[in-house]
Nucleic acid binder design. Structure first.
Length: 253
DNA sequence: AATAACAACAACCGCTCCTAT
DNA sequence: GATAGGAGCGGTTGTTGTTAT
């Protein structure tokens, strides 16, 4: 599943890492740390570029890196965080203990690829759907990806939202981008995915932001008592989220 | 049993950002 | 303030395992 090892014209090894290289890198970093990735391979005696060493350490050798299948909770969280941050995989990874940006990115893309094939029309439609990451350079692919996750229900819900919303795509975009700074405008309705359904990746739901207050400023009881707010609105307060995460992590371990 | 298609994921590449000078 | 070097990030590719035909 990995590229066959080979040497480039500069004598730098590329491709799959051998167990010996792994051991060498691990031993060196455990003893000396990794203050300078560029010079690390030279001192460690590894015929790799610093970049490659950093990637290998970060994604594979680093203690605490979790491998294997994603739990439903992780999928849900990735979905929510992707909605919040877009393709900021490092930011998303920071909220998923033991998962790396590369791994999450791969996981995301494989899921999306699959769902795109299941329903190519919705991804086309979603391209026309403005999203709240208007300023992001990856906004086009984001929209494609988000739409691509959906099934027929997504199509219907998007149509419903677009037709029922008083906001034109332009104004919707504007209003939505204000949401990204947690300045939730009154009665803004957004289309998203139903966390309570069986398949979080394919089912839509309505998120009604009814408060004039930024989500971050909602008191806990307000959040919990609001039928329109979800768990993810609840964890929109990242400080609170950070309190929740360790508990959740214990549960899944 | 053979093979085509799909899924998963490790790793590379190029760009951007950050920091030191 | 300008510049250079290094680190990090996100997009993409290549390979192999698995499943379907």
């Amino acid at each position: 599943m990995v590229r066959a090892p080979f040497y480039d014209k500069n004598g730098v090894k590329k491709g799959a890492w051998s167990p010996e290289e792994d051991n060498t890198l691990r031993a060196y970093i455990e003893e000396h740390g990794h203050l300078n990735w560029r010079s690390l391979p030279k001192f460690a005696g590894i015929s790799r570029c610093g970049k490659s060493c950093r990637l290998r350490w970060t994604n594979y050798l680093q203690p605490g890196v979790k491998r294997g299948n994603y739990t439903q909770e992780e999928d849900d969280l990735i979905l929510k965080l992707h909605e919040e941050f877009g393709n900021k995989w490092s930011v998303i990874a920071a909220k998923l203990p033991g998962r790396t940006d590369n791994e999450i990115k791969n996981h995301w893309h494989t899921r999306i690829k699959k769902l795109t094939k299941q329903n190519p029309t919705s991804s086309q439609l979603a391209k026309e759907q403005p999203c709240k990451h208007e300023s992001s350079p990856t906004v086009t692919s984001q929209n494609t990806e988000l739409g691509a996750q959906s099934g027929p229900k997504f199509d219907a819900s998007v149509h419903q939202i677009l037709e029922s919303s008083p906001l034109s795509p332009e104004t919707f975009s504007s209003a939505s981008s204000s949401l990204s700074s947690n300045q939730a405008s009154a009665s803004t309705t957004m289309s998203w995915f139903n966390e309570s359904s069986g398949d979080f990746w394919t089912e839509p739901f309505q998120l009604n932001v009814q408060s004039n207050y930024p989500v971050n400023y909602l008191r806990e009881e307000e959040v919990l008592s609001s039928p329109s707010l979800t768990f993810y609105d609840y964890i929109g307060d990242m400080d609170l989220f950070d309190q929740v995460m360790p508990t959740w992590q214990e549960n899944i371990d």
